[in-house]
Simulated scan of single mutants.
Amino acid sequence: MSLLSDDIIEKKLLRFPDWEYHKNAIHAEFEFDNFKDCFSAMSRIAFECEAQNHHPNWSNVYNVLKISLSTHSVNGVTDKDFKLADAIEAIVEVQD
């Protein structure tokens, strides 16, 4: 998996308005109606992470989920991160 340049990352982020790039990772924050909905989305995301064998750094406080994606083996962002971000967006969108 090869590291993406800052320019490529910024171009790819145009498809992901809820995500931003800094500190060698792409980051998003999602707010849900309540804890149950947030936890439900996290559970579905967890299954997708296992399927892709790619796991985020994330945190949850009540109804807010914060996610950071980077490919640790190359210490930065790769296509693998955008593939998982795309799946996360689909899961979160279904939740709305």
Score class of each variant (00 low, 15 high):
F35D: 10
D37K: 12
R44K: 15
L3A: 04
N57P: 00
D96H: 14
M1A: 11
R44M: 11
L13Y: 02
P17G: 06
S59N: 13
I26R: 01
S40N: 15
M1D: 06
T78D: 03
G76A: 00
C49K: 06
A28S: 13
N57K: 12
K12V: 07
S73L: 10
I9R: 09
A25H: 01
F35E: 13
N34C: 11
F47V: 12
L3T: 10
V92T: 03
V61Q: 11
N34W: 02
N75I: 00
D79F: 00
A90F: 08
F39L: 14
C49S: 15
S40V: 12
V94F: 13
G76R: 01
S43Q: 15
P17L: 07
N24R: 10
L13K: 06
C49F: 12
K66F: 02
R44C: 13
K36G: 10
M42N: 14
S5M: 07
N24M: 00
A90V: 06
N60C: 10
E50L: 11
N34Y: 01
Y62N: 09
K23R: 14
E89K: 15
K80Y: 01
H55N: 10
F16Y: 15
A90Q: 14
V74Y: 00
A85I: 08
D96S: 13
L4F: 03
E93L: 12
H55Y: 13
F35R: 08
P56S: 04
L65F: 03
T71I: 03
K12D: 12
H54C: 11
F47T: 12
D18W: 01
G76S: 01
A85P: 03
I9H: 04
N63D: 06
D86G: 06
F39H: 07
D37L: 11
H22S: 09
H27D: 06
V64M: 08
W19E: 07
L65P: 00
I9Q: 08
W19D: 02
K80I: 11
V77I: 07
D79R: 01
E48K: 14
K12E: 14
S5P: 12
F16C: 05
H27P: 00
R44Q: 15
D81T: 03
D96W: 11
S5I: 09
Q95Y: 07
L84G: 02
S2F: 09
Q52M: 13
F35Q: 11
D79E: 14
A51T: 07
H54Y: 10
A85E: 09
L13V: 09
D86H: 13
S40H: 14
N57R: 13
I88G: 01
V94D: 14
W58V: 09
K80S: 08
S43Y: 10
V94W: 10
F47W: 09
S73Q: 11
N34D: 15
W58Y: 05
E48H: 01
C38H: 08
Q95C: 07
A46H: 12
S59M: 06
M42D: 10
D6Y: 01
E31W: 00
L84V: 08
D79C: 00
E48P: 02
F30R: 00
D37N: 15
D6G: 02
K66P: 01
F16E: 04
A28N: 00
